[in-house]
Design a protein around this nucleic acid. Structure first.
Length: 815
DNA sequence: TTTAGTACACTTTTT
DNA sequence: GTGTACTAAA
């Protein structure tokens, strides 16, 4: 059966004993506990190749599930590489849980009789929020303390546990007003989804499990087909995903035991799961690492294999990771062993900066250094929350270092892209209310709030979709003549799009039609602004993506599903020299040089986690994940103060820093840092975190260490420190844009500070005064703090909003 | 109805 | 600092 024995068995030469054992465990339940960097993906990909080439399993019988699209893509290409390019009758299915569900539901959802048909729309985050917003309005719930998020997360919680709206309202311990409101929104939310023939992300999983549980013939179909199910990152599985896997693998609806050991069941069949308890970082999203702990009980006869040999990192990095994770109580003991030839490696480098700008500037400089020394090395900056990315972007841009950023808003989240996609979604499913509401008036065609409210009111009465409501609203003369006319035209265009879809017209043609026939592109062209220009470019990019997808043989349906589920797949470019992303996104990746930034209490561990031990332990696991991404060099940084919501706040070093072994750390901070304090408290004069500010930073590009000048002088208040820096900057110490933290930083794009001196006149700026700015044009001073050249000015520029300046730095002209 | 301007709420982490 | 939601005027 073997098509290429020498290649198929090549893993025996390249994998270690344990890995080989895992690869060759062909049948039955298998649990692989794989530490970070222990070759987990290698094991899965080699096993797929082994099953196909050596055991003779037809590829289509193999299902490999990953947690992210990134991982799925990676695995696919690695499997392809292993299998070679020879033609095969089929390929293994490598997909995320969610896209697997879409696949199943697009085929079989109608068997559920749940009022949904296979043309269902997927509502993403944004759609969900809009829906909740609209429901709150309908129900007259005007509660500011109930944000969309605060409603959606309990709804998701309840849905995933099979709790109905009524059940949610009747929870034993909860009878508050708030719960009652959420229950009402929940109820309406579900109705509106059904009305729109739509499902949310949770539904994808829930409906699939429902289908497999209640429809034996459907279950049998998938059970027969997927004889080898593999799950990566198993520690991140939630109860529903686990049940799905169990149903497919065992064809049994019995809960606790996917099987008492039954040799017949496991003949030519396996359930192969790979995970690491220490890397469980998604419990906030319902994942439960107890599942991995309980796996052996659920599946009698489970073969368990531990991979502890790490191939990724230096001894130093592993020691740090091992020590930090030891602080967790909830875990299985496990130690990562370094590979001898990785060596001890460099020490971990630590840097304490005065503020967040200084941190970013340090990181930018070090990255530049690394790239100069070895242009091929890849660097990554890992932060806890997305909002931290901005400063690093600025710092890199200033240095002309190209970078790649993952997360934040993706291409598919841009308004214009979402608009075009909404047209397409609407063409596919005319009942998609969120798509309808989104595009009915973009470009503006005179269908405003009043018309929409009229439609919405009637819709509630009739209990049908908006699309279906419009003709009735027109009949009842609820619409202004203008709106009615516009709506007729709008519906004609959408219907013609829909016809194109029905007629199976080429994907790229339909997408082009959605940009042109709708008047969307024309409206943007007429705007003649820079912004409209960039939107047009994005739309062009979307059309290109459609052409590309068409070449791949995708249908419009595939294309749209992709947009809903794969929001950031393309964002991570494996060959990018510099990448910025959250620690969460970094799971599964590795980099020669890693910067973990913002190691501050309240930020990391995040303040929301501070209250509970389990949550702090999850943060610590996240820290462990972050550390173990590093192959050779690891940098840890934190800032003594940073702006949160525009307000400055002092911060303390993260507890995780304390948990790392001192002897592995090399302190690069200028002046007395917290680390030196930790080392020998007597060497450190200051009291409290602000006392250290003299350590400063606004670190210099020249290696001259001036810190000795400042030791012994401590600044115990933020003002004192500010004064200190102001003195220094005016003394001409400024050599770079990041020099000297300015109390009120001017806009980053402001390049005029060099000319500031000449622009500044003795006359005072005052509130209400009209000024002109090189970049923003005319504006009005709305706030004026302080006097003279140090005064902080808040200026409102029409079109740009409020900008803050320090009088002497800002090139402001009176006008 | 639209748009411009102002007030304000917001920051975990993601399919 | 930023994006969004509400409001006042065109």
């Amino acid at each position: 059966m073997s098509q290429n024995p020498s290649r198929a068995l090549s893993h025996r030469g390249t994998l270690n004993e344990k890995q080989v054992e895992a690869v060759e465990s062909v049948n039955g339940p298998v649990l692989v506990l794989a530490g970070a960097g222990s070759g987990k993906t290698r094991v899965i990909t080699h096993r797929i190749a082994y099953l196909i080439d050596e055991v003779g399993v037809p590829p289509y019988q193999i299902l490999a599930v990953t947690f992210t699209n990134k991982a799925a893509g990676e695995m696919k290409s690695r499997v392809d590489a292993l299998l070679g390019s020879g033609l095969r009758p089929s390929s293994p299915l490598v997909s995320t849980f969610h896209s697997f569900c879409v696949r199943v539901l697009r085929r079989d959802i109608e068997a559920l009789n749940a009022g949904l048909n296979r043309n269902f729309t997927i509502y993403d985050d944004d759609d969900q929020s809009r829906l909740v917003r609209s429901i709150k309005k309908d129900l007259g719930i005007d509660d500011k303390s109930l944000s969309e998020r605060q409603v959606l997360s309990p709804i998701s919680w309840a849905k995933s546990r099979g709790i109905s709206p009524a059940g949610y309202a009747n929870q034993p311990d909860n009878s508050s007003d708030r719960t009652e409101k959420i229950a009402r929104i929940y109820k309406s939310y579900e109705e509106r989804l059904k009305q729109a023939n739509a499902v949310d992300f949770d539904d994808l999983l829930i409906r699939t499990v429902q289908l497999l549980r209640t429809r034996p013939e459907v279950r049998a179909k998938y059970h027969e087909r997927f004889r080898h199910v593999m799950i990566d990152e198993f520690q991140d599985t939630n109860g529903i995903q686990y049940e799905m896997a169990r149903l497919i693998a065992t064809n049994s609806t019995e809960q606790a035991h996917g099987g008492r050991w039954n040799p017949d069941l496991w003949e030519n069949r396996s359930l192969f799961v790979v995970g690491d308890v220490d890397q469980s970082i998604y419990s906030w999203r319902g994942s439960d690492f107890n599942i991995i702990l309980g796996f052996r009980n659920d599946f009698e006869g489970t073969k368990m294999i531990k991979l502890e040999q790490n191939y990724r990192s230096t001894q130093t990095i592993l020691e740090a990771a091992n020590q930090v994770i030891e602080y967790n109580k909830q875990r299985l003991p496990k130690t990562l062993y370094a590979t001898a030839d990785m060596g001890q490696g460099d020490k971990i480098r630590y840097y304490q900066s005065y503020d967040a700008e200084g941190e970013a500037s340090f990181v930018g400089e070090k990255i530049q250094e690394h790239l100069r020394r070895s242009p091929q090395s890849r660097c990554v900056v890992l932060y806890r929350t997305n909002f931290q990315s901005r400063l690093f972007e600025e710092s890199l841009r200033r240095r002309g270092v190209p970078y790649n950023i993952v997360g934040g808003f993706s291409f598919y989240e841009r308004a214009e892209v979402k608009d075009i996609i909404s047209y397409l979604k609407l063409a596919l499913n005319l009942d998609d209310d969120m798509a309808f509401a989104r595009v009915v008036n973009s470009p503006p065609r005179g269908v405003g709030k009043a018309s929409l409210e009229a439609i919405s009111r009637l819709q509630q009465e009739l209990g049908i979709s908006m699309w279906q409501t419009v003709p009735e609203a027109a009949r009842q003369q609820l619409l202004s003549p203008r709106a009615a006319k516009s709506l007729r035209e709008f519906m004609r265009v959408v219907r013609s799009l829909s016809d194109r879809v029905q007629a199976q017209e080429a994907l790229s043609n339909v997408v082009k039609a959605a940009t042109l026939d709708t008047g969307y592109v024309r409206a943007l062209q007429e705007e003649q602004t820079e912004e409209a220009e960039s939107r047009l470019l994005n739309i062009e990019e979307l059309v290109t993506a459609a052409v590309e997808a068409e070449k791949q043989g995708e249908s419009l349906r595939d294309f749209i599903d992709h947009a809903a589920l794969v929001a950031d797949t393309d964002q991570y470019k494996a060959d990018a020299r510099v990448t910025l992303m959250t620690m969460h996104s970094a799971k599964g990746l590795e980099f020669p040089v890693v910067f973990i930034v913002g190691l501050e209490e309240g930020l990391f561990p995040h303040s929301r986690a501070a209250g509970s031990d389990t949550e702090v332990e999850e943060e610590r696991r996240l820290c462990y994940v972050a550390i173990t991404r590093a192959e050779k060099n690891l940098y840890l940084t934190h800032a003594m103060k940073r702006r949160v919501f525009g307000e400055e706040a002092a911060s303390e070093p993260s507890r995780f820093l304390n948990e790392m072994p001192l002897e592995l750390i090399d302190d690069l901070s200028l002046g007395p840092s917290w680390l030196k304090f930790r080392n020998s408290p007597s060497a450190y004069g200051g009291a409290g975190s602000l006392g250290m500010l003299a350590a400063s930073d606004s670190h210099r590009s020249s290696p001259v260490k001036k810190t000795s000048n400042y030791t012994g002088k401590t600044y115990n208040s933020a003002d004192g420190v500010r004064e200190f820096f102001n003195k220094r900057t005016s003394a001409g110490g400024s050599t770079g844009p990041s020099q000297g933290p300015r109390p009120s930083r001017s806009y980053p794009g402001n390049k005029s500070s060099g000319r500031a001196q000449t622009q500044y006149e003795d006359d005072e700026f005052k509130t209400g005064m009209r000024v002109r700015h090189a970049k923003y044009g005319r504006g009005v001073i709305v706030q004026c703090e302080g006097v003279g050249e140090d005064a902080k000015l808040t200026v409102n520029f029409p079109g740009f909003g409020h900008k803050k300046f320090v009088a002497k730095f800002a090139a402001l002209e009176k006008s």
